[in-house]
Design a protein around this nucleic acid. Structure first.
Lengths: 210, 210
DNA sequence: GCCTTCATGTCGGAT
DNA sequence: ATCCGACGTGAAGGC
């Protein structure tokens, strides 16, 4: 009755058991199971954005009477669903693959910063490096001024937290071995604690927005 | 026709426009829209685990002909769905609220480490602090030996990455001001780069598993 | 409400 | 394939 070769949804009273990286049980309860043609499967309860349980694309689904088994591609993870009472079953044909086209990402915030870098820093920058490769990671933006001073900018699209500062600090301590450096955190907001730590490090905060 | 006071799913050819923290567009395509009684709404395309677009619980949904608008609780975010061709509509009553009961979490890995801490460290520990509060965050485990040396352990349930080390470094630099400290990362695995950086910091890796 | 960290995080990009 | 870092991260817990 259930076609595993197409997308479908199943609203039912069920119990869900997961084993893999972790393990969990849920239910019994009235949940919605969704299976997509890419092999991914999700079980949604009410009250949470994240699914109660899931398997990622590439999984295989097997239906045996009132037991559904979903196994991940490498067979390291699986969920078992015990159906107690099926209420709705629907098939979805020609399900589209698609990704949203995003705007307002960190990448685009970087664009904006680079376009206005002289104004933001209050210094004339003569060379800009983006995603500068270092052995310990990529630096978002490095602007070099006429004196050869390196202005290191770590960009965050959201609010700067204390942990974010260590990323800048990591690059700063690495680059200062060979260059004279200044450190900057650029974001729309910064937490109070992060601001305090920023001052301790001797870095500066650049207020930027999308 | 669409009841916004219950849970429902809508399989349709649609275009989705999001505005909020970022903004995005997707479609037109055949997607599945799910609305849960908690107010959350999700639009799933095939090929991704994460929804193409969504609003979190507490949102309000408004249906006007072939336009669906979902607005977040604080009205800072919204998605607009333009329906081009509705293929399926189903209502789901008595949708359960539930959370999975998890095993194999970091918390439980901590339990195991603490139970075997003497063996793991090769030192007799006379006092164990868990989730030790500091102004910059909580330290997973601190074991104190007979000499008063603090053994700081940062636990990860998965693989240790370079970024994880800065969390330990943060606590280490903070605590070493007043105590003699050793630093440890405990996890089932560690990346090559993280291992190298760990050595540079003078920390140790503890191999632990669930 | 702000801040911090965990997560079966997921996902994309680079090596 | 592994590694690394962003994410509209989401969710939980503490203050």
């Amino acid at each position: 009755m259930i076609r595993t070769d197409v997308g479908f949804s199943l609203y039912a009273n069920m119990t869900v058991i997961y084993n893999g990286r972790a393990s969990s049980t849920a239910g019994p309860g009235n949940f919605l199971l969704i299976h997509k043609p890419d092999g991914s499967t999700f079980i949604h309860a009410s009250g949470l954005s994240t699914p109660l349980n899931y398997q990622r694309p590439g999984s295989t689904i097997l239906v045996n009477d009132d037991i559904i088994t979903v196994t991940s591609k490498d067979a390291s993870e699986s969920i078992k669903v015990i159906l107690h009472d099926v209420k709705e079953y629907n098939e979805f044909l020609d399900w589209s693959k698609a990704k949203p086209v995003m705007k307002g990402t960190e990448k685009q915030l970087c664009d904006k910063i680079i376009a206005n870098i002289d104004t933001l820093l209050g210094i004339k920058i003569i060379e800009v490096n983006r995603e500068l490769k270092t052995p310990i990671g990529d630096v978002d933006i490095v602007g070099i001024d006429a004196y050869g001073i390196w202005h290191i900018i770590e960009v965050k699209r959201g609010r700067i937290t204390t942990n974010d500062l260590y990323q800048l600090w990591k690059y700063y301590t690495h680059l200062r071995i060979t260059k004279i450096c200044n450190g900057y955190m650029a974001a729309p907001a910064i937490s109070v604690k992060a601001q305090g730590m920023l001052d301790d490090f001797g870095f500066s905060y650049l207020m930027v927005d999308h």
